[in-house]
Design a protein around this nucleic acid. Sequence first.
DNA 1: TTTAAAATCCGATACGTTTCGGATGGTAAA
DNA 2: TTTACCATCCGAAACGTATCGGATTTTAAA
Lengths: 336, 336
Amino acid sequence: MVTIKDIAKKAGISVTTVSRALNDYYDVSPTTKALIQSIAKEMGYVPNRSAQSLVKQKSNTLAIILSGLEKEGGKDNIVYGMLSGMYAFAETVNYEVALFTTSTAQQKKKSYVQFCKEHNIGGAVVNGIRTDDPFFEELLHSDLPCVLIDVFMEGKNTCNISIDNVKASQQAVEYLIKNNHKNIAMINGRKEASVSVERQKGYINALTASGIEVKGDYLVYADYLEETAYEKTKELIKKFPEITALFCASDMMALGSIRAIKNCGLCIPQDISVVGFDNIPLSAYSTPALTTISQDFYFMGYEASRQLLKMINNEPVKKNVFLKHKLLERDSVAMI
Amino acid sequence: MVTIKDIAKKAGISVTTVSRALNDYYDVSPTTKALIQSIAKEMGYVPNRSAQSLVKQKSNTLAIILSGLEKEGGKDNIVYGMLSGMYAFAETVNYEVALFTTSTAQQKKKSYVQFCKEHNIGGAVVNGIRTDDPFFEELLHSDLPCVLIDVFMEGKNTCNISIDNVKASQQAVEYLIKNNHKNIAMINGRKEASVSVERQKGYINALTASGIEVKGDYLVYADYLEETAYEKTKELIKKFPEITALFCASDMMALGSIRAIKNCGLCIPQDISVVGFDNIPLSAYSTPALTTISQDFYFMGYEASRQLLKMINNEPVKKNVFLKHKLLERDSVAMI
DNA sequence: TTTAAAATCCGATACGTTTCGGATGGTAAA
DNA sequence: TTTACCATCCGAAACGTATCGGATTTTAAA
């Protein structure tokens, strides 16, 4: 391993000056600067990040904390999108990304704060962490800058980023109403998740605004799981055959619903219309193609990390950032 | 930040002993060990990875080098699968993973070797890098341990991991032949990629073994892209209406082919049968569900990193590791 | 009692980099 | 000639940890 000491020796110059030359400081002459840089290149010098991070007490690294890169969890491509967005942004500012996942398996899991401290990390983007996770609490109470994606909590030094979930789901349900649907059920995710609450609010808003009675029985929770949605949908449409439309709080659940509906011998959208949420790749390939609320997860990851960097640099940021969404009309909704 | 010095002071004990206690060395008494560990916990001590990595000259980190976490590239979920497998393994051995992607955009991209040196990384898992990438060449010539997924090249300190692509595609085509197909075309990927070569070999093997003439015109390249496959398939089935079956070297291309076939007013599998390759999530949701060769990318990432760690620790490893595959019969193939 | 061996501890140094505080020599203004 | 100011350089300390080589005490064997 070639170090700045080696360069210094070869150039007959002090270590200090080599360091300052390589970092392009003003107080080293253009001549020596050029000399040193050429020697560095010639010797194949690579700066040692550990040493840099140790002495500078920071590491040019952003953390992303995820609920888990699970074997079967990635079908929706959401995490992938956020990740790639984050990496894309980090690259533009010469930062790196450290990915930390909470393994459900591992009992003695490490605290998020600890992870960041270990690595001299300045701040974290957080997604998919359960709000009752004790380590999440600890993170919120620490003064590490955090950007929370799709979860609304207040911490010591946090901000939130997401689409306007209320408006988006309201829009989705209004679209169904516009297509003359009145008996509209909702397959929601986990009751506790803040996005679920928001999306439910939008559903109710749309119904009441159109003078449609909100029936508690039409509202079921499927944990954002395809399989659960499949079962709940089956029960639902057997119990309430008058239902003509379904609003699902995620595309994965919508896919489960679609399967359930087909399985009951009904047709989509002729018998029952379905609207999803997220616009995951699968939704475009299902039959029928799923009408859904489109979110740009790549951009979300990109923006989240951009916000984070601002916070790390003590620049002012908005506490709540709302990104754009879009209703994507495809083939799973019909006029009745 | 609380350091071992702080602990030493509080415990009235030397820094050396604190370090050795925390690392559970044999030559510190159980009493002091317990004392120090409790003080460490109480003070919220977190070891500084930079300092550790600096002094130990290594970092307990595995690199994964990918061709890019691109916005649109992740639809097949393959990279995600490998990633999660790698993280899962790394966790079991208390290692971390550093992800490095080659941005097509960024001109002044950094060499892979440089990245590893900077971070004191002991070795890398590599996937999807073009074989003519100069930095890839450099990596192969370096003595960094490398596990190459799905690419067959020999380096100074490398090994390869993949399924038996020849056998797998041979099996796929044999399956079509068993269903009485004789005019079987193949949509292959990039001609240069080694997996393409292998899969083509399997295709030809199967045909010749059954005494079916291999027609050069039946073999087209679509770059592993859905859209290109769509177009090439259209041309193909217009030009050669006798074709009754298609073997595609990837599921993404198969999805393009399916769309093309439908678009020509033909039915799958009644008019044309299709077999894909990979078993990506989308393949199960397409209509008809795609018959395909199933690979376990999670396991591939897991095994690749397991191999890598062995190489880093100078344990002996096999030069070529073949993982299992499986022909997954679904609904896109019919007997004629 | 002496001696050897085990158990337990510690000082000093090293890892590679940055940075504080100053040193040196040269140039221009007073 | 003196003074002040640049431009350019450098020594030494610091970051937090691990480890080599040895020191000290305790225990057990002879």
